[in-house]
Design a protein around this nucleic acid. Structure first.
Length: 493
RNA sequence: GUCUCCUUCGUCUAGUGGUUAGGACACCGGGUUUUCAUCCCGGCAACAGGGGUUCGACUCCCCUAGGAGAUGCCA
């Protein structure tokens, strides 16, 4: 049997980590089995639908390099793949159920339903529809319809018996029919189907072989099986994926921080890192390997290695993965990736000047191993392009040194700076070592005042490399400013 | 409230009856170094609890506890 799986998001919000993990698992499963990965847009919630969300879905999958074999924009043999374009189909099948007496019209207002739920909550009763309209006579129904009262179509869940489905991970999952959500809505009053109807109808006609979806769907699994039975169809194979949680163990959501993929993208996470990390929550290959490219996962992924327990999303580990992938990039590639961030922060001009580009290219080797996120580049490299507006004069003076000593160090440096800028890395270091020896201080005590003077911070890329990037003129200028500060301090006691 | 699913270091996980319970992130030390970072080395740290089954249980079964999810004219 050909493997056909689908990712079926609803365009009501930005693609988030949990959703994309489901998409990835489906995609990898399809690829590893030589099957088809189908994208289906479940836009049946007209209230919450947004065009932005739909665009985000496409751009996010594109960014991750996930291509669908059938779906919107490319079509396929079982389209359309956007549910709003399949509108009539759902009505047709809801009507069929109605005719067969397996569903019924419900005229309850949302006000009544709300009140009902409130009372159930208060009375600590079990929640759910009270099947108020289940036994309306045909006359009553006709009368209400001709009176123009809006209605929905509800599924008749049997009172007796039990329903089960086979889950690849969980084994046999059984539910008593009386515990299934009582008579859920299949077709809404606006004529659009609910998820329950739409997913069953579409999965059937799209010949979906496996359903990989989050475990939050387990409770409705039995309902869906009942639906398949009502239509006389056989259900696909289920595989309920463990959920992705926040630090507090609750379902991952906005309050845990960034959860949408665009946010990660904007902050400078690489798709490689996202794919790799996200795939490792809930899935693992073995005990000695955790780096996987998308291409490798397309081959190695397997359902058997999926974990049953929910996993906590660890931002720290994602960041670590990101740093690892940044360091795997070639310098030209990394340069290209970093440019937009420098422009956005106004560190360099847009478009870049040749002079700036020269510096950016030259600085990358110094920057690369200091980046966790691409966006880190701005803070790290600002001193190369911008004057230092204010820095801590106290930071200029290294530990175990006084102001006078620091002044002497900087003056010594000033006298040789021209040689340093034009020298090679090692040669430059030798010159500084000479100063250190002469003044009987450590090399670090020579370089630290220079570092602070030139970069404005005690933390910076290697200082010798940095001054060569900045050039003699700027370096001298900044050392002089630092010296003035220190001298003023001496005068003021 | 009811139903369902889950339970190995703080976190992600390996482990399918016999292991000093392994790895990674984080954290803490140490080293390299020009600060930071990178990198290297080391350390800390787990089988939720209780019953069985068995010569032997992290592994199989049951119970308890805890956690999560569902219970929408949202998906």
């Amino acid at each position: 049997m050909e493997v056909r799986v689908r990712y079926a998001p609803s365009p009501t919000g930005l693609q988030h980590i949990g959703g994309i993990r489901t998409a990835l698992f489906n995609y990898f499963f399809a690829r590893s089995k030589g099957g088809k990965f189908i994208l289906r847009v479940e836009d049946t919630d007209r209230e919450r639908y947004t065009e932005e969300a739909l665009q985000d879905l496409y751009t996010t999958l594109d960014w991750l390099g996930v291509k669908w074999d059938e779906g919107p924009e490319i079509g396929g043999p079982y389209g359309p793949y956007i549910q709003s374009e399949r509108f009539d189909l759902y009505r047709e099948y809801a009507d069929k159920l109605l005719e067969d007496g397996k569903a019924y019209r419900c005229f309850c207002t949302s006000e009544r339903l709300e009140k009902l739920r409130e009372e159930q909550k208060k009375g600590k009763k079990s929640l759910g529809y009270d099947r108020h309209c289940r036994n309306l006579t045909q006359e009553e129904v006709n009368a209400k319809i001709s009176a123009g009262i809006p209605s929905v179509i509800r599924f008749k869940v049997p009172f007796e018996g039990k329903t089960s489905f086979e889950d690849v991970l969980l084994g046999k999952v059984t539910r008593k029919n009386k515990d299934i959500s009582p008579d859920p809505v299949l077709l809404k009053s606006d004529g659009f189907p609910t998820y329950h109807l739409a997913n069953v109808v579409d999965d059937h006609f799209m010949k979906i072989s496996h359903i990989l979806r989050a475990q939050e769907w387990i409770p409705s699994g039995a309902l869906h099986v009942l639906l398949y039975e009502a239509f006389g169809w056989s259900p696909p194979v289920y595989c309920h994926l463990p959920m992705v949680m926040g630090k507090d163990g609750q379902k991952l959501s906005k309050r845990h921080g960034s959860t949408s993929v665009v946010e990660f993208r904007e902050k400078g996470y690489l798709p490689e890192a996202i794919i790799n990390y996200v795939s490792m929550v809930g899935w693992s290959y073995d005990d000695k390997r955790e780096f996987f490219s998308r291409e490798e996962l397309e081959k190695l992924f397997s359902l058997e290695k999926i974990n049953k327990a929910p996993g906590v999303f660890d931002y720290k580990k994602l960041e670590w993965f990101n740093g690892q992938y940044i360091r795997k990039k070639s310098m030209p590639e990394l340069t290209g990736l970093v440019l937009p961030y420098l422009k956005k922060e106004g560190i360099i001009s847009d478009p870049v000047t040749d002079k700036e580009m020269e510096i950016v290219e030259a600085m990358m080797p110094l920057m690369a191993e200091r980046l966790h996120l691409l966006s880190d580049i701005s803070k790290l490299s600002a001193f190369l392009f911008k004057d230092i507006t204010d820095y801590d004069a106290a930071a200029l003076v290294p530990k175990k040194m006084n102001t006078e000593g620091t002044i002497r160090v900087l003056e010594e440096i000033l006298s040789v700076i021209g040689n340093v800028v034009n020298a090679g890395e090692e040669e430059a270091e030798t010159i500084f070592r000479g100063i250190a020896e002469k003044l009987e201080v450590k090399l670090g005590s020579v370089l630290m005042p220079l570092r602070v003077a030139v970069t404005g911070s005690t933390v910076s890329p290697p200082i010798i490399g940095s001054i060569r990037l900045i050039g003699e003129e700027k370096t001298v200028e900044r050392i002089k400013i630092a010296l003035e500060k220190l001298k003023r301090e001496v005068e003021n006691g």
